[in-house]
Nucleic acid binder design. Sequence first.
DNA 1: AAAATACGTCAGCTTTATTGACGCATTTTT
DNA 2: AAAAATGCGTCAATAAAGCTGACGTATTTT
Lengths: 160, 160
Amino acid sequence: MPRQTSQNAAKTELLETPLQNAGSIDFEVIELLFFAYRDFVSDPDQILVKSGFGRAHHRVVHFVNREPGMTVANLLETLQITKQSLARVLKQLIDSGYIRQVAGPEDRRQRKLYPTRAGRDLALALAEPQSRRIERAFEGASEATRESVKRFLRGMQTEK
Amino acid sequence: MPRQTSQNAAKTELLETPLQNAGSIDFEVIELLFFAYRDFVSDPDQILVKSGFGRAHHRVVHFVNREPGMTVANLLETLQITKQSLARVLKQLIDSGYIRQVAGPEDRRQRKLYPTRAGRDLALALAEPQSRRIERAFEGASEATRESVKRFLRGMQTEK
DNA sequence: AAAATACGTCAGCTTTATTGACGCATTTTT
DNA sequence: AAAAATGCGTCAATAAAGCTGACGTATTTT
């Protein structure tokens, strides 16, 4: 037993070695994803504060523009949040005139969601800096490389 | 002027066409990043609820393990949050024995942060499912392709 | 000796999310 | 036709995570 071991060395042990790519753990890419996403969302965040909206509003505006006529249930599944979380955000967007609801033509219980012109403009304004960032990250990349990156990102998704 | 235009057509106009890759806006990659990150963080989230911790704790544990001896100021800059946001999270991790502080040897105002053995184990447990997901997304990819993806992710960061 | 720095903390607030329950209109099943 | 299920909105209570601003202490720099 080592002498000079101040109380409970085993339990209070401090590790000074950096945790690096080791075993099968890829810390490098984990970190790259963190930083990439952190900066990726920082662009629209700056625009959103001006309108008094947040990230959640952004997501809703984005997906409703991408797929007009989607239902509330569709949106909940896409965002993977609860109905109650969506409620306030959606209400604000409707009240502000960015999104409107229409009763479903076949199933009238459904509320189909559509962007207004203002809603489309907002979606475009938010996407613009993100898209510029993506273009910058792809700078000089071949079409094949771009496809590889997309394939990687698709592979990161949980297959439904 | 069109007849049969119910009140204010221009202002309440509903857009039914999906917003697609158009002009210079790359909606496809924007969405891929959203879904990739959403699922990427869902893995550790499930582990964290068991310990009563959240995503913020994860980030702190991760970076302190990656760079033992980092200061509180380093961490704030990396995470891009405020001191007060970090305070509660860091305190909980210290109180729970995952992280410890040591006064800086040169500058004793600094608090250098180190993981304990438990803190390292937690970081590894959280990284494991994320790393498996990354490996799956890279399946069959050449070394060159992997490098391309990393280059893309680095390019997404705001240059400091 | 004075100023600046690194850190912790107090107090109050906002946003975003959660769970659970209920009500209404409508559609599907029995 | 009646009963059950579905899509949606809402109420109430709560939690996690972030924010701003201000101040105190120890320490280092000027």
